[in-house]
Design a protein around this nucleic acid. Structure first.
Lengths: 197, 197
DNA sequence: GGCACAAGCGGACGCGTTGTCCATTTATTC
DNA sequence: GAATAAATGGACAACGCGTCCGCTTGTGCC
């Protein structure tokens, strides 16, 4: 209980060489994820590319998924910020269906920009237990509740499912454009919230 | 071109011991998938449990996914038959929204009954390239087209996404009942086809 | 019934990935 | 610059994969 009040430096600050290596690792990993099938990147690959030993890598990250997640994190934070405090329709102020549609559109843009990282991050199929996923679910759930949709808890997971990276990647591979996907998701958002008409 | 007309026995019929082993393998695999995390079952496990060698296993199945798929196949065939030629609302005759809702309900029942197999079958995240998935997509696409939904190709994948085994398993783990999930999906089906009202 | 031959079998092998462990090196503090 | 703690990196054991090939067993024919 005391620790909470104690101070601002619970951990004694990162050592200079450690910080340098963290940067090297993230840098090398970003390159690897972008340059080949992100699901095939191994811990050894990253260690070699970063010029550090396996042990050093495992000290910080338990697996490749968590590295992709770390890289993804900053991009997701930007969107999360906009959802909480940005301008409508992404931020508060617009009707829930419109906000949901805007969220879909932003997520598709995010998938497009970082599909390699998202694929790498979901390699284990553990997306649903991620902190980020929890955020998205809470957001969608709140919008659904605001629109008086029944079973918002179930519906939130349902409406997030199409954003799974495999689904999106598969659609793109089959020739769909992000435009068409966005259009379909917008219609879904409006229909699900009863704003269809 | 001739082979098509040639005869009924392109392959010389399966040997007795081979058939016996196939049965042993499928039997043992079903037990394993049911009794532990299906994603953690290995080819070695199945070989040991079935009392056959690794080579024997690989002769027929390239990986655990295909074994789970083989087990799942007969269950899926039943539903596919009903969709094509069964009574409404599952079969032809009912309005598309109702048929989609009925399809959702049947799929949830199928997930409930064989969640272990479905999890085992999707272990690689290759669900979307499966023959079965192609069938579901074609079915949903046809219903959407019938309801004059725009972008039926995109929408079909979108509306199938919530049926991913991980999503369903995750919802059940979070305390949702199949009842509530069915109810939410029914509403989604009606909303997406414009039969909401 | 016995024989020849193809089909089927199974375990050993080589490979690549994982995660851990610890002797050594390096940064920080006084 | 000495003392201490943190960080490093590569060796190691365990594991799963997929293949290969000498041996066994079923099947069709005489």
């Amino acid at each position: 209980m005391d620790e909470l009040l104690a101070g601002k430096e619970p951990r004694p600050r990162e050592r200079a060489d450690a910080a340098r290596n963290r940067a090297k690792v993230l840098d090398a990993a970003a390159g690897l994820f972008a340059s080949r099938d992100p699901r095939a990147v191994t811990m050894d690959d990253i260690a070699k590319a970063a010029g550090v030993g396996r042990g050093t890598l495992y000290r910080r990250y338990p697996d490749t998924t968590s590295i992709a997640l770390a890289l993804l994190d900053e991009h997701e934070r930007g969107l999360q910020e906009k959802l909480l405090r940005g301008e409508p329709p992404l931020g508060p102020g617009a009707p829930p269906g419109e906000r949901l549609a805007a969220f879909y559109e932003a997520m598709v843009d995010l998938l497009d920009a970082h599909i390699d990282l998202v694929l790498g991050a979901e390699a284990g199929g553990e997306r649903l237990t991620t902190g980020a996923y929890g955020f998205w679910r809470a957001h969608v759930r709140a919008l659904l509740a605001e629109a008086n949709v029944p079973e918002p808890d179930v519906m939130a997971d349902v409406l997030l499912a199409p954003l799974a990276s495999e689904v999106y990647a598969h659609q793109r591979e089959r020739g769909q454009t992000s435009q068409r996907i966005k259009a379909a998701l917008r219609r879904l958002a409006l229909a699900a919230t009863g704003e269809g008409r």
